[in-house]
């Protein structure tokens, strides 16, 4: 530890390095299909609308990146009448 550093602000470069490492690992893995989420959203929508009527606007697909895993959250609002109408 630097003698003077005891009295100064903590270093910010290590945080920069760590954030970059996590981010770039993901960006490299998904390079080329940046529109993956859009594709997933369209296909999910297509599958579901085979069975029930849903509103395009009420479907949300989100991808969240963590250090170890990526989570895909699909949120679909299904109206009460949806099942019947499509049948």
């Amino acid at each position: 530890m630097n003698f003077f550093r005891l009295f100064s602000r903590p270093q910010s470069a290590p945080a920069a390095r760590e954030r970059l490492q996590v981010l770039l690992a993901h960006e490299r893995a998904s390079a080329g299909d940046s529109d993956l989420v859009t594709k997933l959203r369209d296909e999910i929508l297509r599958v579901i609308s085979k069975h029930m009527q849903i509103d395009d606007e009420k479907v949300s697909v989100k991808m969240e990146r963590g250090a170890q895993v990526t989570t895909l959250a699909v949120d679909i609002e299904i109206p009460f009448e949806a099942g019947k109408k499509a049948a």
Partner: peptide, 15 residues
């Protein structure tokens, strides 16, 4: 870089 407020050479090379 010395103060630790800028990515240093090794950091950038490693990334």
């Amino acid at each position: 870089a010395e103060r630790g407020d800028m990515l240093n050479v090794d950091d950038v090379l490693e990334i």
